[in-house]
């Protein structure tokens, strides 16, 4: 990575670290926290979909599993909240491994429908297992997180916790992408048969990608449960799965930083612009459609050439002459 780019990223992260000191009130900090939780889940999707090419359209299910498991363990079983969070993450990851089994055989629309079905089943379970989840009325009274003897109660405390977890996750995902594992995932995305013939254990890699994705979403969900103190099945619908998916696409699929930026920005946007709240999914879908259909790459290329042409000749360059 070029040093000036590194510097720019460092500045952005430094500013973000100090942001709660400037934000006008607790509500804004809270939305940032939600954005960070979503970004964490998006990192998982960047690994699964961006790097590995496997579509998960029921991804909120892992978030739900993490959240409800952690809530149930801490409230119904009286576990310490940190242990309950770990249980939530573990359960989500196990289900991630299960969901990778259909991916051994299926791809494209077939796999994506399978993940939709998984998401629906989890949603129906949260509504119908009333004795565990309190069903449509929602799960109340989840205790706040206690970490190393410290209670994470205020929005600011959550902000710093989530922000530092996010930085860790970004580093880990970036390392994964540049490692032999990341390359193997890319190989599977590009050509599964060739990957297999080149000695890559495709099944193991798919399972790994699904577990990573489920882990991230499960962790985000488990933390969200203790952060908000209340869970409702209504906040974990298929549309939420789609919105996580759109964040991944908007961020450029393969880019970890892009995914995080899109995750935070697309969570803040509908919260800040009240009038968007009804229609934000509609707007997201339109944005995704445009990103997929517009020839963005070649547009960027042309823009770059044009800029280069300007710099070189110091004057007007007609469009036609930019492409050599």
């Amino acid at each position: 990575m070029r040093p000036e780019r590194l510097k720019a990223i460092a500045i952005v992260f430094g500013l973000l670290a100090a942001a709660p000191l400037f934000l006008p009130n607790r509500y804004y900090v809270y939305i940032f926290n939600r954005g960070f939780a979503n970004a964490l889940a998006v990192i998982g999707l960047v690994i699964l979909f961006g790097m590995g090419g496997q579509i998960s359209l029921g991804h909120i299910a892992f978030f739900t599993l993490g959240a409800y498991t952690s809530a149930i363990f801490s409230v119904r079983l009286g576990w310490p909240s940190a242990a309950a969070v770990l249980a939530g993450v573990a359960l989500a990851s196990i289900w991630g491994a299960f969901l990778s089994v259909p991916a051994f055989k299926l791809s494209g629309p077939f796999l994506s429908i399978c993940t939709v079905a998984f998401g629906e089943v989890v949603r129906l379970l949260t509504i119908n297992l009333v004795s565990l989840t309190n069903g449509p009325y929602g799960f109340y009274g989840i205790p706040s997180l206690i970490l190393f003897g410290r209670r994470i109660g205020s929005e600011k405390a959550w902000y710093f916790l989530l922000w530092s977890l996010l930085v860790f996750a970004i580093l880990a995902a970036a390392r994964l992408k540049r490692s032999y594992i990341g390359r193997a995932l890319a190989a599977i995305r590009e050509d599964e048969t060739a990957a297999e013939v080149m000695g890559i254990n495709v099944r193991a890699m798919k399972t790994l990608a699904f577990v990573c994705a489920a882990f991230c979403a499960g962790l985000a969900g488990a933390l969200y449960a203790h952060m908000s103190g209340f869970l409702s099945p209504e906040s974990f619908t298929g549309e939420q799965s789609f919105s996580l998916f759109s964040m991944t696409v908007v961020g450029g699929q393969e880019s970890v930083l892009g995914g995080v930026a899109a995750g935070v920005a697309l969570t803040l946007l509908p919260e800040l612009m009240r009038f968007l709240q009804e229609y934000y999914i509609m707007i997201f879908s339109l944005i995704v459609l445009l990103i997929v259909l517009l020839p963005l790459e070649s547009m960027m290329e042309r823009a770059k050439m044009w800029m280069a042409g300007l710099a070189r000749e110091g004057g007007k360059v007609p469009w036609g002459r930019c492409s050599k």
Binding site: S112, M282, V288, L289, V292, L293
Partner: peptide, 24 residues
Amino acid sequence: NASPVKALVSFIALSIFLRNAARF
């Protein structure tokens, strides 16, 4: 000459768009 994944993503987006447009 888009990849099948790209085609799938655009149809997923279309379906979500149409559903929400109908709600509108």
